[in-house]
Design a protein around this nucleic acid. Structure first.
Length: 757
DNA sequence: GAGCACTGC
C-alpha cells in the first residue's frame, strides 16, 4: 500500500520524455501498426530513448516467432475499436508477455502518465513474467516494467508504466481508489481460473468501464470460458464482447481411456506407471493424486515394485525414480522435480522419472520433459457449507477443463500421451465442464467486507459473473454486523473500514483493533500473524516422539493461541534462526512468513494509529489476550457437554471434539476455537480456555439469552449471567468504573437488517 | 489420537 501512496503523484515528465524528444508527436491510442513495428524493430527504445542492446535484438527474434506477434495488426484494430475485449490464447501463444507490450505501444503510458496493469493469480507468475518482459523491453526490472505482490513492491513510482501484479493486489488498490485512475488499461490474465479476486475484479471493472470511458479492459482466458465472458462483458444488451483469438503452440497429446471404470484409482495409477515404464519410449511421467499421504504412499509402493521389476528382469527395464510434489514440501525437496531422470545402467535401457503430484502441477508448476500424464480424475476441493459455517476438503471428480489442462502437461516439449483412468463415456457424461469457481465454494465474509469498503452494499444486485449462494452472503452479513463492521443500514462502519484495511479475516482484524483496550496488542499482533500462516508444526513419521516432545516443551496449557504466541516469542529470542526452527520441529518457512505478516500488520497498525501495548503482569495479560480473542471469535465458542470430553458449539449445536494435537492439559468447560474442521469427525482446532462471563460482557447482542433455545450451554450461561449481575451490583456500589473493553465491541445493531436478505 | 488441494491480501 505504501507504493499506492507514493505513486499518487505520478508525473509523466519524470519518465524521460520531453518536448524535444525525437519521438514527440505520438498520440496515445492513435498508433498505427506499421509505426509500432518500426519502433519495436528500430534502434532506439521508445520508452527509454536509449539504443537497443544486442540482447534485445536476439530476444526480438524469438518474440516474432510467437503466434500472437503475427496478429498484431488484428489486435490493434480490435483494441482501437473497443473498450473491452475478450482474448483467448492457449499455452505457448505468448499472450501474457506480448499483449501488455502491445498495449503499451498504443497507450504510450510515458506520455499519458498512466499505467498498464496485468494481473496474475499467483505471485511467482507475476514476478517471473515481469522479469521476462523487462528483458524483452530492454529495461531494468523494477524500473519501466515492474511487479507488485504482497510483501514486495518492485515498481518505481513515476517510472514504472507496465506493472504485473497479483489479482488480490489490484483488488486492494481498488479499495483505496475505486476508479483505479492510475491505469489506462487493465488486463486480467488467466481469468478462466476464476480466483475469488479475479471474479470480484470482473464485477468491479465492468461497472467501472461504464464510469470511465477512457479505461480499456482485456480479459484473457482459456477457450472454454470465452463465450461466458463475452456475454458478461457485453456493453450492448443482446450482443457479445468481441473475441480475439490466438492459436497456441504445443505438441499433440494422445489421450487414452480405460475400458471399464477403475474401482481403486491409486492402485490403477501405480499399474499404469509400471506399464509405461515397461512398454513405452523414454520420457518422464506425471501422475496426479489428491494429497500428501496418498502421494507419499504411492511413491513408496512404486519404488518397491520397480525395484522388484529390475531384480527379476535385469536389463529389460531402466532405473525408476519417484519424486513427490505438494505445496507443504520444503522448497529444497520441491526442487527435485527438476532433476534429470536417472542414467541408464551400463548397457541397459534409459532411466525414467515419475513425478507424483497434487494439483499444484496442474497450473502452478510446470515441469519440462514430461511426456506421459496419468490422470485418475480426482482432486481435493474445498467446499464451504454455510449452514454449519464449515469449510471442508473433499476428494471430488475434476472437471473437463481440468482434465484437459492435465493432459496438456504431456505436450510441452514433444508429443505426449495422457492416460485417463476412467472411461470415455464418464468423461463425456459425468464430468462438469468447468471447476466450480472459488466464489461459489468459499466463505464470503472477507469479500463482503471488501465490497462494503468499495461502496458496494447491495450485494443482491451486484453483477457477479456467478453469484454466490444467498445463504453464504447472509452468513457473511450476519457475521459482519455482529462484529460491528456493518451498521443497521448495511453501510460500512468506521470500525468496518478499519477492519477492511487489514489483509485478514474479519474476526482477526476485529480482535487486533480492539486489543489495545485490553493492553495486549503486542501479543495479539503475534497471535494474529501466527494464525494467518500454514501449520508451523512438523511431525515426520519416523520422529513422532521427538517432534511431540519439542512441541510439549513450548506448550502453554491454557490454550493453543497462547502456545502459538510462545513459539513466536522463543523464535524471536533465537534471533529468527531457521536452524533453531528445524531442530525444534517447526516449519522455518511458516515462521518466516509469520514474521513477514507481523511486520506488515505492525506498519498498518501504525498508520491507523492503533497502539502497540503490553503488560508485565502475566495473569492480567493472559486474561486480556483471551478477552481480545472473544471480541473477534464470540461466534466460535464451545461448551463441554456429555461423555467422552466432547463439546457442543454454541448456537450451531454441533458436537465436536478437540483436535488431537490440542495442547490443553485439561478439558475446560468453555473454549474459544479458531477453526472447525470436518475430517474423519468434526473437530475444533486451535482452542483456548475462556470464562463464560466474558461472552456476556463483550458480545452482549450475540449472547441475548432470551433468544437462545433450551440447551445445556444456555443454562450454564444463565448461571454465569446471574453471577455477573451480582458482581456488577457490587462494582457499582464500589463506584469502580474500570469496565474495560465492552465499550469497544459492537452491540450487533445491524444483525436484524442482515436477516432480511 | 490425527491431517494439511491450491492460491491470495
Amino acid at each position: 500500500m505504501e507504493n499506492l501512496l507514493k505513486s499518487e503523484n505520478n508525473d509523466s515528465s519524470v519518465s524521460g520524455f520531453s518536448a524535444v524528444d525525437p519521438l514527440y508527436g505520438f498520440i496515445p491510442r492513435k498508433m498505427k501498426t506499421q509505426g509500432v513495428v518500426k519502433l519495436i524493430e528500430g534502434d532506439v527504445s521508445l520508452f527509454t530513448n536509449k539504443s537497443h542492446t544486442p540482447q534485445y535484438k536476439k530476444i526480438l527474434k524469438t518474440r516474432k516467432s510467437l503466434p500472437v506477434y503475427a496478429q498484431m495488426e488484428q489486435f490493434y484494430k480490435m483494441y482501437d475499436e473497443n473498450q473491452i475485449i475478450i482474448m483467448v490464447g492457449e499455452t505457448g501463444s505468448g499472450k501474457t508477455t506480448q499483449i501488455p507490450q502491445f498495449v503499451c505501444y498504443s497507450d504510450l503510458p510515458h506520455v499519458s502518465g498512466k499505467l498498464v496493469a496485468c494481473t496474475q493469480p499467483r505471485r511467482v507468475a507475476a514476478m517471473s513474467v515481469a522479469k521476462r518482459v523487462a528483458d524483452e523491453m530492454d529495461v531494468t526490472l523494477g524500473k519501466q516494467v515492474g511487479y507488485s505482490i504482497r510483501f514486495e513492491d518492485m515498481t518505481e513510482p513515476g517510472t514504472t508504466f507496465l506493472k504485473y501484479m497479483t489479482d488480490g493486489m489490484l483488488l486492494r488498490e481498488a479499495m483505496y481508489d475505486p476508479d483505479l485512475k492510475r491505469y489506462s488499461t487493465i488486463i486480467l490474465d488467466e481469468a478462466h481460473e476464476r480466483t475469488l479476486a479475479t471474479d470480484i475484479l470482473m464485477g468491479l471493472l465492468k461497472t467501472l468501464a461504464k464510469r470511465r470511458s477512457d479505461l480499456k479492459l482485456i480479459i484473457m482466458s482459456a477457450t472454454l470460458d470465452a463465450l461466458k465472458f463475452q456475454k458478461y462483458f457485453s456493453l450492448i444488451p443482446g450482443e457479445s464482447a468481441p473475441l480475439f483469438k490466438v492459436p497456441g503452440r504445443t505438441h499433440p497429446v494422445e489421450v487414452f481411456y480405460t475400458v471399464e471404470p477403475e474401482p481403486d484409482y491409486v492402485e490403477a495409477a501405480m499399474r499404469a506407471v509400471l506399464m509405461i515404464h515397461r512398454a513405452e519410449d523414454p520420457g518422464d511421467i506425471l501422475l496426479f493424486l489428491t494429497g500428501q499421504e496418498e502421494i507419499e504412499d504411492a511413491c513408496r509402493k512404486i519404488k518397491l515394485e520397480a525395484d522388484d521389476l529390475v531384480k527379476h528382469n535385469p536389463g529389460s527395464v531402466g532405473p525408476l525414480v519417484c519424486v513427490p510434489l505438494y505445496s507443504s514440501l520444503p522448497p529444497q525437496q520441491q526442487q527435485r522435480i527438476f532433476d534429470p531422470a536417472p542414467p541408464a545402467r551400463a548397457g541397459g535401457p534409459p532411466g525414467r522419472k515419475v513425478v507424483i503430484s497434487t494439483n499444484i502441477a496442474e497450473t502452478s508448476l510446470t515441469i519440462d520433459g514430461i511426456v506421459y500424464v496419468i490422470d485418475p480424475g480426482f482432486s481435493k476441493q474445498n467446499v464451504y457449507n454455510p449452514r454449519i459455517r464449515v469449510e471442508s476438503l473433499l476428494v471430488s471428480p475434476i472437471s473437463k477443463a481440468s482434465a484437459m489442462q492435465r493432459a496438456g502437461r504431456a505436450g510441452r516439449t514433444r508429443p505426449g500421451k495422457c492416460f485417463r483412468l476412467y472411461t470415455e463415456k464418464d468423461f463425456m457424461t459425468e464430468l462438469d465442464e468447468q471447476t466450480h469457481p472459488e466464489i461459489l465454494r468459499s466463505n464470503m465474509a472477507n469479500t463482503v467486507l471488501e465490497l462494503a469498503k468499495l461502496g458496494v452494499k447491495d450485494l443482491v444486485h451486484f453483477d457477479f459473473v456467478d453469484a454466490p449462494a444467498p445463504e453464504t452472503l447472509m452468513r457473511a452479513l450476519e457475521l459482519l454486523s455482529y462484529l460491528g463492521a456493518l451498521g443497521e443500514d448495511g453501510n460500512i462502519t468506521p470500525l468496518g473500514a478499519k477492519m477492511a484495511e487489514f489483509p485478514l479475516d474479519p474476526q482477526l482484524a476485529k480482535m487486533l483493533i480492539v486489543s489495545p483496550e485490553f493492553s495486549c496488542s503486542n501479543e495479539i499482533l503475534t497471535i494474529v500473524s501466527m494464525l494467518s500462516v500454514p501449520n508451523i508444526w512438523i511431525r515426520p513419521n519416523y520422529l513422532l516422539k521427538q517432534a511431540d516432545a519439542a512441541k510439549n516443551s513450548m506448550t502453554i496449557p491454557d490454550g493453543d493461541h497462547l502456545t502459538l504466541m510462545n513459539v513466536y516469542n522463543i523464535y524471536q529470542r533465537n534471533k529468527f534462526d531457521k536452524n533453531w526452527a528445524y531442530m525444534n520441529y517447526l516449519s522455518g518457512r511458516s515462521l518466516q512468513q509469520a514474521e513477514n505478516v507481523r511486520v506488515q500488520l505492525e506498519r498498518m497498525m501504525e498508520r491507523q494509529e492503533i497502539k502497540l501495548v503490553s503488560m508485565t503482569d502475566e495473569w492480567k495479560l493472559s486474561q486480556g489476550i483471551r478477552k481480545s480473542l472473544i471480541c473477534g471469535f464470540f461466534m466460535q465458542i464451545a461448551h463441554r457437554e456429555g461423555e467422552n470430553d466432547s463439546y457442543v458449539t454454541v448456537k450451531d449445536d454441533q458436537i465436536v471434539s478437540l483436535y488431537p494435537s490440542c495442547g490443553l492439559n485439561k478439558r475446560p468447560e468453555w473454549v474459544v476455537f479458531n477453526e472447525f474442521v470436518l475430517t474423519t469427525r468434526p473437530y475444533i482446532r486451535t482452542v483456548t480456555q475462556i470464562q463464560p462471563e466474558w461472552l456476556l460482557e463483550l458480545a452482549q447482542e450475540y449472547y441475548n439469552l432470551s433468544e437462545f433455545k433450551n440447551a445445556e450451554y444456555t443454562t450454564a450461561l444463565k448461571r454465569a449471567q446471574a453471577k455477573l449481575g451480582k458482581r456488577s451490583l457490587e462494582i457499582e456500589r464500589n463506584h469502580n468504573d474500570q469496565g474495560g473493553g465492552s465499550t469497544s465491541t459492537n452491540k450487533g445493531k445491524g444483525s436484524k437488517k442482515s436477516k432480511k436478505l
